[in-house]
Amino acid sequence: MTDLAERLEALETRIAFQDQTIEELNATITEQWRQIDVLSRKLETVEEQVRSGVYIADPSTEAPPPHY
């Protein structure tokens, strides 16, 4: 009976660690999706600005590079 109790306790411990790992992985994935959403929105904004010509600069108004 002790062997059975030890095996049961080992399984319960293992399940507890697995539950903790699953929760940590879920939190990590949730944070990564949040970051992906933020970056996707920023990328869309930059793409819209480039399409509308906001980032197209007039070369005559730009300062020369630092090595000149």
Rank of each mutant, 00 (worst) to 15 (best):
H67N: 12
I22Y: 04
K42F: 02
I29F: 11
P65V: 12
I15Q: 04
P59W: 01
E62G: 00
R34L: 03
A10T: 07
E48W: 02
V50Q: 02
P65G: 12
H67W: 15
W33Y: 07
Y55R: 01
R51V: 01
Q20I: 11
I29W: 08
V38H: 08
H67L: 08
T45W: 03
E31I: 06
I15Y: 09
A10M: 07
T30F: 07
L25H: 15
L11I: 09
L4A: 14
I36P: 00
A57H: 03
P65A: 15
T13M: 03
R34K: 13
I36V: 12
S52R: 08
E12G: 00
W33S: 10
Y55F: 11
R41L: 12
M1D: 13
I36N: 04
L25S: 11
E12Y: 03
P65S: 15
P65Q: 12
D37Y: 02
L11N: 05
K42C: 03
W33I: 14
E12K: 09
T28S: 15
Q49M: 05
I56R: 11
R14D: 14
P65D: 14
D37C: 06
L8N: 09
G53I: 00
T28G: 08
D3Q: 10
T2C: 03
T45E: 14
V46W: 02
T30A: 13
A5Q: 13
E44F: 04
V54G: 00
D19C: 08
T61M: 07
D37A: 13
I56N: 04
V54Q: 03
E6M: 03
Q32F: 04
F17P: 04
Q20H: 13
V38R: 11
Y68Q: 14
V38T: 09
P64N: 05
M1C: 08
I29E: 10
T2P: 05
P65E: 15
F17W: 13
E12N: 05
R7F: 08
N26T: 15
L25T: 10
Q35W: 04
I56S: 04
I22C: 06
R51E: 03
E23F: 10
E48T: 08
Q18F: 13
E62P: 00
S60I: 06
Q35T: 06
E47Q: 12
A63C: 04
P64W: 06
D19P: 01
E24M: 09
D3P: 01
S60Q: 07
A27N: 13
E24T: 09
Y68M: 12
R34I: 04
L25A: 09
E6V: 05
V38I: 09
V50Y: 01
E47G: 00
E12Q: 12
R7D: 06
V54L: 05
I36R: 02
Q49R: 11
L43F: 06
Q20K: 15
V54I: 02
F17Q: 15
S60H: 07
